[in-house]
């Protein structure tokens, strides 16, 4: 009876995930090995093509830069939030959560108004006479990165506030009472204790930006194609489904690889784990 219950209760969700996610994704990946030219022909074609490799490199680059900036900005902000007294802290958390709950399209759209040819920055610079004609800031790697950082900093802040609040105050006081100056205290006490949280945040931001679609679509356009927009274009514009599936397979391998490696690292780095 018990055995029946425990399997029966998990069964609908298990069947749903296997039938609608695992099998479809596996089938999609499987189609890439069925080419007449040989099982790995689409992959060799991908890795030999300058254009496709440029898309992959660009995506990795944008994701890494975004993750790096989000780590620094998010950590400092989360650190400040964690020090705040109760009321102010809640207000700051709300201010970080609000953008997070607002959709990707809306938040990317804001940067079209800010960075566009007739956008706020161009208008401001022109009216003070710093520039004669509008700068083209949209559809550059910079515009994609700015919007991505904007997208993911709240996520990093929220991940890290919880982690930083969990660091016992006694440890910092102990370090201080033993004569440690603020910088060594930070480097030798706070940073190692926050490392697992930093890794979790980094994984979330990296995978999120590596696989994003709407932001590179709106702010990067054709010129700054990334893996997500490339996959969509191959599938829905040129109807090259095997090509799209190849992109999908590469994306799956990279994201799951990063998650596995980093979560193992987070476990090893956790100084609180015995």
């Amino acid at each position: 009876m018990n055995k029946l219950a425990r399997w029966g209760l998990t069964m609908p969700a298990t069947i749903a995930v296997v039938l609608l996610l695992v099998i479809p994704v596996m089938l999609t990946i499987a189609t890439t090995f069925g080419e007449a030219a040989g099982p790995f022909s689409t992959y060799t074609a991908f890795f030999k093509s300058g254009f496709r490799m440029a898309v992959l490199y660009r995506t990795l680059q944008v994701a890494l830069i975004t993750t790096g900036i989000a780590l620094v900005v998010g950590f400092i902000t989360a650190y400040v939030i964690a020090q705040m007294p109760g009321r102010l802290k809640s207000i700051m958390i709300v201010a970080a959560v609000f953008p997070l709950l607002t959709g990707v399209v809306v938040r990317s759209f804001a940067w079209l108004i800010i960075l566009g040819k007739n956008g706020i920055i161009n208008n401001a610079l022109m009216s003070v006479g710093l520039i004669g004609e509008p700068l083209s800031m949209l559809y550059t790697q910079g515009s994609v990165i700015v919007a991505m950082v904007y997208l993911f900093v709240p996520l990093m802040i929220l991940t890290l506030v919880g982690v930083l609040e969990g660091i016992p105050r006694d440890l910092i006081e102990a370090a201080a009472s033993l004569g440690a100056r603020p910088v060594p205290t930070f480097l030798q006490v706070i940073l190692p204790l926050a490392a697992p949280g930093l890794i979790v945040g980094a994984v979330l931001v990296f995978t999120g930006s590596f696989t994003s679609y709407a932001t590179p679509q709106l702010l990067g356009g054709e010129k700054q194609m990334m893996m997500g927009t490339f996959l969509y274009q191959r599938a829905m514009v040129t109807f090259d489904w095997v090509g799209a599936s190849t992109i999908a397979a590469i994306m799956v391998v990279i994201t799951i690889g990063v998650v596995l490696i980093m979560s193992r690292m987070a476990r090893r780095l956790n100084p609180m784990a015995v």
Binding site: V25, T211, L231, I256
Partner: peptide, 15 residues
């Protein structure tokens, strides 16, 4: 864990 865009594409193809 699976990239959303991949999931969307796989769903389109399969279901």
């Amino acid at each position: 864990l699976v990239p959303e865009i991949v999931f969307g594409f796989a769903l389109l193809k399969s279901i």
